[in-house]
Each structure stands twice: as C-alpha cells, then as structure tokens.
Simulated scan of single mutants.
Amino acid sequence: MNHQLTSTQAFWLGHLHHAFSLGQSLSRYAHEQGLSFADLMVWRQRLMIQKIVVPDMHRPNRFVSVAVVP
C-alpha cells in the first residue's frame, strides 16, 4: 500500500527506525534523544493503526542463563 506520510508521521517513523537500527529499547532511545517515551509509544500505535509498517521493538534479554557449580 502506497501511503504518503505527513511530516509528523515521517518524524516519528524515522525515530522508530533509528531506535531499531541501534538495537535500543524505545525507552532508552527516547531518553537519549530527549523525546517523551509516551509520545514515541503513542505514535508507534497510531502508525500501526494507520497500516504503516513500523519496525519491531527491540526487547533486550531480561534473563541470563547461568550455570550453578556445586
């Protein structure tokens, strides 16, 4: 589907792609870029509702496997 993006849509989509390319969580990316995490999430949802393809969110591993040695 061809969709002409508005400048606002392009702004937020660009940030979403940049965060994904850096492999950063959106919360960390927003903090480092001086953006509101809430705004970034709202725009991610808005773009998805408008059928605009957004990159997956990077979700760092929360658990690390360990070996227990007796």
Rank of each mutant, 00 (worst) to 15 (best):
M1S: 14
M1K: 11
M1V: 10
N2S: 12
N2T: 11
N2G: 08
N2W: 08
H3N: 12
H3Y: 15
Q4R: 13
Q4L: 12
Q4A: 12
Q4N: 10
Q4M: 09
Q4S: 10
L5Q: 10
L5W: 06
L5P: 10
L5C: 11
T6D: 07
T6S: 15
T6V: 12
S7F: 15
S7N: 14
S7E: 15
S7I: 14
T8H: 15
Q9L: 08
Q9I: 09
Q9W: 08
Q9C: 10
A10T: 15
A10M: 12
A10V: 11
F11L: 14
F11T: 08
F11D: 02
F11N: 09
W12C: 07
W12V: 04
W12G: 06
W12E: 03
W12N: 03
L13A: 09
L13H: 07
G14C: 11
G14Q: 12
H15D: 06
H15Y: 10
L16D: 00
H17L: 13
H17F: 14
H18Y: 13
H18Q: 15
A19C: 13
A19T: 04
A19P: 04
F20T: 03
S21Q: 15
S21M: 09
S21R: 14
S21N: 10
L22H: 13
L22S: 04
L22V: 10
L22G: 08
L22E: 13
L22D: 08
L22K: 15
G23I: 03
S25N: 05
S25G: 09
S25F: 00
S25R: 05
S25Q: 11
S25C: 08
L26H: 05
L26Y: 05
L26Q: 12
L26P: 01
L26K: 06
S27V: 09
S27I: 02
S27D: 05
R28M: 05
R28W: 08
R28N: 06
R28K: 11
Y29R: 00
Y29M: 05
Y29S: 04
Y29H: 07
A30T: 00
A30P: 01
A30I: 02
H31V: 02
E32K: 10
E32Q: 14
E32I: 01
Q33W: 02
Q33D: 00
Q33F: 01
Q33L: 00
Q33N: 07
G34A: 06
G34C: 07
L35N: 03
L35W: 00
S36R: 09
S36N: 10
S36W: 04
F37L: 00
F37R: 02
F37I: 01
A38N: 11
A38V: 12
A38D: 03
D39Q: 11
D39E: 04
D39W: 01
D39K: 03
L40P: 03
L40K: 05
L40W: 00
L40I: 04
M41Q: 07
M41A: 04
M41L: 12
M41N: 08
V42N: 10
V42W: 08
V42M: 13
V42L: 13
V42H: 13
W43L: 03
W43Q: 06
W43A: 00
W43R: 07
R44C: 04
R44N: 04
R44V: 01
Q45A: 12
Q45W: 11
Q45I: 05
Q45R: 14
Q45M: 10
R46L: 05
R46S: 02
L47M: 03
L47V: 05
L47T: 07
L47S: 02
M48V: 09
I49D: 04
I49W: 01
I49L: 06
